[in-house]
Simulated assay, not measured.
Amino acid sequence: MKHLNKITTYICIAISLLILVDFIVSKQTITETIVSEKTKHQSYYNAGGNSHVSYSVITANESFNCSQSFFETLESQKLININKSLIFNRVNSYQNITTKQKETYSLRYTTGLFVPLAVLLLLILSLTKPNISDILKFVTKLAIVADLIYLLFF
């Protein structure tokens, strides 16, 4: 069982490195015409009654979320630079051509940088210090597999 645990640890470390490389290294930067811009008001049906607004930019080949401040700069222009990732072909960043404002959406930071870095640190630490909780190692491995599934299918 310990042998299988060590193998899964190395596999998850490799997945973390793969996702980090995908986030850091760009495949291409393309210029596309914006087809439409969407705002969507999303409400939560809970006691707090909270809600938020999502902002999306749609081009001929891509659809991605952006921040409100970036969305508001797009009103007068229709061209945008899109930076695509190397392995998973995701939108890493985008830039308004006229204002030169460049942005990476926070979910991309989470899936491409923060989760893989946290997993990498915890798993390498678990190899050097074997007394780390097995549940923590399992949850960490589960997080990187879920991140990989998200990058592949959503």
Rank of each mutant, 00 (worst) to 15 (best):
K2Q: 06
K2P: 00
H3P: 01
I7A: 13
I13S: 05
A14K: 06
I15Y: 01
S16K: 09
S16W: 04
L17W: 05
I19R: 02
L20A: 02
I24W: 11
V25W: 13
V25L: 11
S26M: 10
S26L: 10
Q28V: 09
T29S: 07
I30R: 04
T31R: 13
T31G: 06
E32A: 00
I34L: 05
V35P: 02
T39A: 08
Y45D: 12
A47L: 10
A47N: 10
G49V: 06
G49W: 03
S51A: 15
S51C: 11
H52R: 01
V53I: 12
V53W: 07
V57F: 03
I58G: 06
I58A: 00
A60H: 14
N61M: 10
E62N: 15
C66R: 04
C66I: 01
S67M: 04
Q68Y: 12
Q68A: 13
F70D: 13
F70G: 11
E72K: 14
L74S: 06
E75L: 10
S76M: 09
K78N: 10
K78R: 09
N81Y: 11
I82L: 14
I82R: 13
K84E: 15
K84F: 08
I87Y: 05
S93L: 03
S93Q: 00
Y94C: 02
Q95M: 13
Q95R: 14
Q95D: 01
N96R: 12
I97V: 15
K100C: 06
Q101E: 15
K102G: 08
T104F: 13
Y105R: 02
L107T: 10
Y109P: 07
T111E: 05
T111Q: 08
T111K: 06
L113N: 00
L113P: 05
V115A: 07
P116G: 11
A118Q: 06
A118F: 15
A118C: 13
L120P: 04
L121R: 01
L121H: 02
L122S: 05
L122R: 00
I124K: 07
L125W: 04
L125H: 04
T128K: 15
T128V: 12
K129Q: 09
P130F: 07
P130W: 07
I132K: 01
I132T: 09
S133M: 03
D134F: 13
I135F: 08
L136I: 12
K137N: 12
K137C: 08
V139F: 14
V139Q: 08
V139T: 12
V139I: 14
K141Y: 10
I144E: 05
L148R: 01
I149D: 04
L151V: 02
F154N: 00
F154D: 05
